[in-house]
Computed example of a mutant assay.
Amino acid sequence: MSRLRVHVLALGGTIATRPDAGGVMQMGAGADDLVAAVPLLKELADIEAETVSRVGSHSLSFDDIHAVAGKIAATAADAVIVTQGTDTLEETGFLLDLLVKRDIPVIVTAAMRNPALTSADGPGNLLAAVRVAGDPWIRRHTRSLGVMAVMLDEVHAVADVIKAHPTRIDAFASPQTGPIAALVEDRVVPLGLPVRDAIEVARQALDKVSGEARPVALLWMGLDEPGGLIEAILAAPDRLGYRGVVVAAMGGGHVPERLAPLAGRLAAALPTVVAARAGGGPLLRHTYGGASSEIALLEAGLIWGGRLHPLKARVLLETCLRAGLDRAAIARVFAAWG
């Protein structure tokens, strides 16, 4: 096998911060700096380092990630590693998985500890990502694995991974499935292949995603929610600029009973997806009765998000809308998630 060629695309984030004169961490390091901090990389691969942006991932946009997907589509490298902040990694990685159709390893990684702290994890995560990119099992199963997230010596499918803690070094987990591989010493230990049928359904439906942004509201249901935001969206002639809505619902797919009529009106006005506020499904379909039950909401035209986390459901809905899919096509895409 020829020497591995890896294209590193750096977007910013904690992994790329530096302390200013007051000791506060600021964006500053680029892709070359990240690579230079891990001398062992040059023994593993030929690295092409490209700085795309220097922002926290909380400031990234859908358009930014579409541009990254374009770079991945055009690269001549054998693998691509995207470094970024952790705030939105679970969303940006999932969006890349929907958009990227290359049969090369594509990995997102980041850091929880900034470079000024003891045992900063950024260099180790970047090294682990390169090791994963060159591993024979990973390369043999690239299409079956899709885009991966590598954090703290674990490899996750981006459709399943979430940021489960705001600050801890072990912040990333895949609660529904567990990691797909682990790094031990200098080797990758396979643990399982992800179920990707739903991703393939989405990719086929999203063959051409070239439209302008379609903002999607995320409405989180909680105890005694009065529904004022739903009313405001319905009352505004332009729907406050939103083109779709994700409702992070209670339990297996429920909203407070007094909101059931509003939810039905919302579904009639805009494509409205229900996802589990618990962080993933699969949702119920025909267990409970009543005006605000899953049965009633489905009959009212709300789209079921299956096992998707609300954040990922929002990413998928925005991408469907950007691709120009109608409500029926959107429902078919989401139905594949169970």
Score class of each variant (00 low, 15 high):
residue 43 E to R: 00
residue 296 A to Q: 02
residue 40 L to Y: 09
residue 298 L to A: 12
residue 207 D to G: 14
residue 286 H to S: 13
residue 37 A to W: 05
residue 186 D to T: 10
residue 112 M to K: 00
residue 252 G to Q: 13
residue 192 G to W: 03
residue 100 V to A: 00
residue 15 I to M: 08
residue 69 A to W: 04
residue 334 F to H: 07
residue 78 D to Q: 09
residue 204 Q to A: 15
residue 205 A to I: 08
residue 201 V to R: 00
residue 1 M to W: 07
residue 147 V to C: 01
residue 5 R to M: 12
residue 16 A to M: 03
residue 97 D to A: 10
residue 113 R to C: 05
residue 301 G to F: 04
residue 49 A to C: 11
residue 241 G to Q: 09
residue 71 K to S: 07
residue 173 A to R: 15
residue 260 A to Y: 02
residue 239 R to I: 00
residue 47 I to N: 00
residue 227 G to C: 11
residue 120 A to V: 04
residue 95 L to V: 03
residue 178 G to N: 06
residue 1 M to C: 10
residue 95 L to P: 05
residue 158 V to W: 00
residue 118 T to I: 11
residue 59 S to I: 07
residue 232 A to G: 04
residue 49 A to H: 12
residue 176 Q to M: 15
residue 250 M to Q: 13
residue 70 G to N: 06
residue 113 R to H: 11
residue 16 A to T: 07
residue 80 V to R: 03
residue 109 T to H: 02
residue 228 G to E: 14
residue 61 S to K: 13
residue 25 M to Y: 10
residue 51 T to W: 05
residue 47 I to S: 00
residue 195 V to N: 11
residue 2 S to V: 10
residue 304 W to G: 12
residue 66 H to E: 15
residue 98 L to A: 02
residue 67 A to F: 10
residue 27 M to N: 15
residue 283 L to R: 00
residue 242 Y to R: 02
residue 250 M to A: 14
residue 39 P to H: 04
residue 71 K to Q: 15
residue 203 R to T: 10
residue 250 M to G: 13
residue 299 E to D: 14
residue 229 L to H: 12
residue 320 C to N: 07
residue 256 P to Q: 09
residue 283 L to N: 00
residue 268 A to Q: 13
residue 128 A to I: 06
residue 147 V to Q: 01
residue 192 G to E: 02
residue 288 Y to E: 02
residue 94 F to N: 04
residue 93 G to I: 10
residue 250 M to S: 13
residue 79 A to E: 09
residue 231 E to W: 01
residue 50 E to L: 11
residue 59 S to P: 02
residue 67 A to W: 09
residue 245 V to H: 05
residue 256 P to Y: 06
residue 254 H to R: 13
residue 242 Y to P: 00
residue 303 I to E: 08
residue 334 F to P: 13
residue 75 T to P: 03
residue 248 A to T: 01
residue 219 L to W: 13
residue 101 K to Y: 01
residue 39 P to V: 00
residue 144 S to N: 09
residue 262 L to V: 09
residue 88 T to P: 12
residue 244 G to K: 05
residue 68 V to L: 06
residue 292 S to T: 09
residue 67 A to D: 15
residue 207 D to M: 12
residue 89 L to Y: 03
residue 196 R to F: 01
residue 122 G to R: 01
residue 82 V to G: 02
residue 309 H to T: 10
residue 24 V to D: 15
residue 183 L to Q: 02
residue 73 A to D: 15
residue 188 V to T: 03
residue 331 A to V: 09
residue 191 L to R: 15
residue 252 G to W: 09
residue 143 R to V: 10
residue 141 H to A: 07
residue 111 A to W: 12
residue 170 D to R: 08
residue 160 D to A: 11
residue 14 T to L: 01
residue 11 L to T: 15
residue 193 L to M: 03
residue 72 I to C: 01
residue 237 P to Q: 05
residue 234 L to I: 09
residue 47 I to F: 01
residue 214 R to A: 15
residue 83 T to W: 01
residue 241 G to A: 08
residue 187 R to Y: 04
residue 173 A to W: 10
residue 189 V to W: 04
residue 44 L to M: 14
residue 334 F to E: 10
residue 21 A to K: 08
